[in-house]
Write a protein that binds this DNA or RNA. Structure first.
Lengths: 170, 170
DNA sequence: ATTGACAGTTCTATTTTAGAACTATATGCT
DNA sequence: AGCATATAGTTCTAAAATAGAACTGTCAAT
């Protein structure tokens, strides 16, 4: 499976992974949320090679996650800022950070704390049900096919060797 | 930066990415949450090469995210099930799926729906503040150094070219 | 004795990434 | 004028990771 194919899978997770599912992209996005905006800023913060950084920024712009806007003429310079689509990645970032805070910290404790401006306190992110507001866990959730699901039990096109890997996806 | 180095960064996000931040690992974990447990099951569901699948499963077991338990003797066979540490990845998975559901669906709609057993409804995951219960967005959060932060303004070891990339990390 | 299921391992070819150097435009210094 | 510095890339070769296919080993069923 190539990266391009991922984005065409009938699975929101596979499609999202096709866009942000590599380590440099995720780290670049971390920097974006920490207010880094410029090429040199990303490069020196991350130690990424300039080649890959340029490539990843282009991809994020193509995907509509970053917008490239000029901040000076002559020489032309641009900076990269998160679009709304990019800002919407925040829960993913926070979920990743929170898992790391829970399972990957050393004896020194958390590298970063997060303060909620509204209530003023340092917080953890909690994922809740949009309908009843209760916290979610894997075991309380039942997953079932939606309108965009690929195959049904009566799928007229039986899986071939080529498509077999996809029929399960969702 | 090598994969191994990522896990030593003073950043919960970098460390987590070092563990689950590649596309196959994320897809394998999706299958785990969809109740796949066996080698052949992963392989045929994903179309991943057997070589990489074996390698990734080993890594997930080493990290304590999956446990490899025998389900029959002669010939010895094992299955892979999520540990609590693995189950705790659920919010990350749901956040990724939800972003895809919001920004990557085609005209046909969502491939999968999620029903909350407690309230019986199809839901979206919402990330809220553990302290006040309000939904979170990037702009309402102030990030500041915690006890495990690497460098302070008075850091006695000034950044060198070699460590420069790390000093910003958090 | 042969076939099939399962869980891997081994091999070569291709693709990606790392690492370093180079290009281009413009400012400011001497 | 000549040179260093800042910014944002591009281009090159070497090293690492992944794809794709074939192979190994154990046991049950026919």
């Amino acid at each position: 499976m190539k990266w391009k194919e991922l984005e065409e899978e009938p699975c929101s997770m596979a499609r999202t992974i096709g866009v942000i599912g590599d380590r440099w992209t995720l780290l670049i996005l971390r920097e974006c949320f920490l207010r880094t905006r410029r090429f040199e800023g990303f490069q020196s913060a991350l130690g990424i090679t300039r080649h890959l950084l340029a490539e990843r920024l282009k991809k994020l712009v193509r995907q509509g996650i970053l917008r490239r806007i000029p901040y000076q003429e002559s020489p032309k310079r641009h900076e990269y800022i998160l679009t709304q689509k990019g800002l919407d990645l925040y829960p993913i970032m926070m979920a990743i950070v929170h898992w790391g805070d829970t399972h990957m910290v050393d004896e020194r404790g958390r590298p970063l704390l997060h303060q909620h401006r509204k209530c003023g306190k340092d917080f953890d992110p909690v994922m809740v049900c949009s309908e009843c507001g209760e916290p979610l866990s894997a075991k309380e959730v039942h997953t079932h096919p939606g309108p965009g699901a690929r195959s049904t039990p009566a799928d007229p096109a039986p899986a071939t060797a080529k498509t077999k890997a996809r029929s399960r996806a969702a």
